[in-house]
Design a binder for these strands. Sequence first.
DNA 1: GTCTATAAATTGATAGAC
DNA 2: GTCTATCAATTTATAGAC
Lengths: 224, 224
Amino acid sequence: MDTGTLSPLDTTVSPKQRAALDAAARLFMARGYAAVSMDAVAKEAGISKATLYAHFASKDALFAAFVEERCRMLEADTQAVSHDVPVEEAVRRIGGFWLRFMITPGAIAVHRIVMAEGWRFPDLINAFYRSGPTRMKAWLAAWVAEEQRLGRLRNDVPPQEAAWHLASLMRGEVFMRVALGVQPPPSEADIEHTVESATRAFIRSYGAQGCAMGGAAGPDSPQG
Amino acid sequence: MDTGTLSPLDTTVSPKQRAALDAAARLFMARGYAAVSMDAVAKEAGISKATLYAHFASKDALFAAFVEERCRMLEADTQAVSHDVPVEEAVRRIGGFWLRFMITPGAIAVHRIVMAEGWRFPDLINAFYRSGPTRMKAWLAAWVAEEQRLGRLRNDVPPQEAAWHLASLMRGEVFMRVALGVQPPPSEADIEHTVESATRAFIRSYGAQGCAMGGAAGPDSPQG
DNA sequence: GTCTATAAATTGATAGAC
DNA sequence: GTCTATCAATTTATAGAC
């Protein structure tokens, strides 16, 4: 099972517990929560069900541990963004990185499961929200604020709003289609087109130089 | 159970089948798919389980019928938009209408369930996608195209892209928080702020007058 | 078509030996 | 900690009477 750009964490837990958590991650990402039985997790991990219950008090606890670990992986994945390229190119890079991360199988699976089962775990939802969207928004907002300070983005909009708008524009149809599993999946060209279109729209709206943007739009949307 | 702006369809089916479908809709929207048993549906509908199986061959078939009916309801819900108000005010109204529709319990429930269980029903996903997002995008794109023709929106971007950007900006944090059930739920002020912020960002990006937009931004985002 | 009763399988979770 | 074996409850789905 491809887990995207994330790699497993080597926390100090017993090998059996590690195997159980890895097996749970694989199965939850492949089949969701409800469709995965504790029998299946134990078999996938190569341990007995009793051992599984020795490490995780319930299926809910196992799921909570899975989501929490995914969130920790996400937190370890933010990358530094330089301020020494033109703002439009920086938006293109940041947006492209973010969109490509969001459509990795691991990120999609977590999104899907949290959306599907999260209402049963209010505490977990709030933990996920703090570790995921809120953290990403803060990271983007910090970058925006610095660009504003450097005079490259208009400074009459709060950085957090600009950050959310940037992320929203980048998600576009590509993310929705991948998240839903709509066929056919978006191509690399679709991704690039989405990033380019969103970048131009964002710069037109937030660029400090106002209406000085040039360049015509491309052909009609390749998705539809 | 509030089903949002949608009302049930009066298709010609037997009363028991109608009761079964209505009960399934209520329970699926309240608890999702996996957490609802056929026993619960039969009890909620006031019929026996055998009768339920006489009308729907399986739980999957019942779920498919539920989603298909929801999609038909959605298709019957588009509304006309006038072109005789300033473009910024029109964006505010359309965006507000759209955002408020998207966070109704019915729309949220369908979104959540389709996201959660849709991968098991590829045909259903594609039908939902055509009835929901694609239709809404086409509706918005038609409005954008007319405004472009009237010279009120820049015409160097395909209407479908502009429409998707508008919808993306409007969703914002409000929709995500409602969809995930993050506490506390967004207030009416949060919704209005999101619509206002998105409207300004969209007009700055797509307004025909270029950089002539005035008005400073409001206080920091009320959601954190 | 509709019901009561039940089959057949799977589930989450546990007892008790080692 | 780890295992085998099992419990108790729930699930989807069906049999058979009316």
